[in-house]
């Protein structure tokens, strides 16, 4: 089992003819994902290998059932792409794009939510249910089918953690990159709720970082609602306050978003916090009694 996506998921790529979009569309096909169509305004009728290209999401929907769209368009056009997908009623919208203006995202968040749809990202690597479906930019080969859920605000740090899990014999049910921006569509808490309900997931790894209070909220959710074990890692313990550490959302400001507060919140909720990524598999094994 997995959350959000599985082997039946039909995926379209918005921005499929661009440099990043075409590269990753091909990569996803190679990794076994059912990419049913690509969308680039004005390029309807073309093809990317065997993938038909349409000029709009709506046109693609006339020919295909669309479960998920993944967006690879530059930040200037990403709001338009998100709204187009939402207007077409695509249930799950994944936005990979980095560099979106915050106020646009405040509005996009509501736009998608009011239509009862889900947005993941922006500024995220996407998500993967190993052996079933990969939607995003992560390297497939480090993953392995299994029963550990992974949620992260980061890209390559997630790969580091997944790699450590895999080499220690712990496969993954679903790994979700929620994105490094201040305003994101889906939070740790939203996904913890899904993992708690997923019979295919035994435990969850949460990879947080400085900035905001999503980790604190996740800790409160774990304390009140979760029966499955959770292991956490927080990056940015050496980051100076007031400096943005690469991710737009990774900043300690106004005394908020400190690593100390996040670690303390998790520990208070009974969540083991690893000091290094390579400690995570051991902590998870101990929590699961394996």
């Amino acid at each position: 089992m997995s959350i959000l996506i599985d082997e039946t998921t039909n995926v379209i790529v918005q921005g499929a003819t661009g440099r990043d979009g075409s590269f990753h569309a091909r990569q996803m096909v190679a990794d076994g994902t059912k990419i049913v169509a690509g969308v680039t305004p004005g390029k309807g009728g073309q093809k990317l290998d065997d993938i038909p290209i349409y000029s709009s999401v709506q046109e693609a929907q006339q020919e295909h059932r669309v479960d998920v769209t993944v967006i690879f368009v530059p930040p200037k056009f990403a709001t338009g792409a998100i709204k187009e997908a939402a207007d077409a009623g695509v249930p799950l919208i994944i936005c990979i794009t980095e560099g979106m203006p915050v106020l646009e995202m405040v509005e996009n968040y509501r736009y998608v939510k009011e239509k009862g749809l889900r947005l993941i990202g922006p500024n995220c690597p996407g998500l993967i249910s190993p052996g079933k479906c990969k939607i995003g930019i992560m390297p497939y080969k480090i993953h392995k089918e299994g029963d550990i859920g992974v949620i992260s605000r980061s890209g390559t740090l997630t790969y580091e953690v997944v790699y450590n899990l895999t080499v220690n014999g712990m496969g993954q049910s679903t790994c979700v990159g929620i994105g490094g921006d201040p305003i994101i569509g889906t939070t740790f808490t939203d996904l913890l709720e899904l993992f708690e309900a997923d019979p295919g997931t035994a435990g969850v790894v949460v990879i947080g970082e400085i900035g905001g209070e999503d980790e604190e909220r996740a800790a409160a959710f774990v304390k009140e609602k979760m029966s499955k074990p959770v292991v956490a890692f927080i990056s940015g313990r050496t980051a100076p306050p007031g400096k943005r550490m690469g991710h737009a959302g990774a900043i300690i400001s106004g005394g908020k978003g400190t690593p100390q507060a996040k670690v303390a919140a998790f520990e208070d909720a009974g969540v083991k916090v690893a000091d290094k990524p390579d400690e995570i598999p051991g902590l998870m094994k101990a929590a699961l009694g394996r």
Partner: peptide, 15 residues
């Protein structure tokens, strides 16, 4: 490569 891994790398150096 990557902001999260870059932060974690600094943390581990300190550790």
């Amino acid at each position: 490569n990557g902001a999260g891994l870059a932060m974690a790398t600094m943390d581990i150096i300190k550790l």
